[in-house]
Amino acid sequence: MKIAVVIRQVPDLIEPLEVDSTGKALDLSSAAFVLNESDDHALEQALLLKEKHGGSVTVLGIDFGDVDSSLYAAAAKGADQIIKLLWGDPNRTPPPQQAAPMYAEVLRPLGPDLVLVGVQAHDELDGVLPAELAVCLGWPYVGVVRGVQAANGKSLLVCKEFPGAVMAQFEVRLPAVLGILGAEQPPRYVPVSRIRAAMKTASIAEQQVAVPPEAVRVEVARLYPPAPTERAEMLTGSPEEVASRIAALLEEKGLLR
């Protein structure tokens, strides 16, 4: 199976976030960027499928932040090919509607059977990239996927999670795009020495892509931190008093039967 994985760089949330002077965006001027967590799971899922069924894994990332490190780490983990997309502006990432055609442009000639993308990114509204990408490619799409099995050469069995921990199994025709929530096992750790070795042996293929016009379909009107509410009640007193107050509260809220 030929598998492609899309990885994104997102702001690192260990730094406090602040709204910029426009009041419509985050001030990311001093943010650090890291690999998007669910994309890391998409990569892990791809590597697991390759280990089980053979094939190859190609990883694509837009030139931004620390993408080189993420690509080399992917190579150290077992990716066969790593590609960096150059779109002319290394100082920002394009919104998903604009990014999807760029990824599609690189993916079409590669002809993968399967494209895996993290189902969400925390700098993205509603996690639309994998669905947009499926539309660009004209392929079927399933999101919020937590497990992938090859059924036969032509289709896959995928496990999709719904709210309330309800799981459903779908059969998906290939080629397809999947939005991965979690791989079947946590993303593997690769020792730094192996990443360093990959930096010497693997090479990042750079590919210029056409930049589609930025189609703004949803505009941010205002961005603001959640207003603090004063609903917290601190329980004090002896353990017995606190315990009976907790019990009374649970009953009051209808959580006890």
């Binding site: 690192d12 260990i14 890291v34 946590p186 593997r188 750790y189 020792p191 730094v192 020495s193 192996r194």
Partner: peptide, 22 residues
């Protein structure tokens, strides 16, 4: 072990990642 792809316990992996990133 790690060179052979054997995974260290998860908590330790997190510590490695913290050192690497931060």
């Amino acid at each position: 072990a790690m060179q052979a792809g054997i995974q260290p316990p998860t908590e330790l992996q997190e510590t490695f990642q913290n050192l690497l990133k931060y």
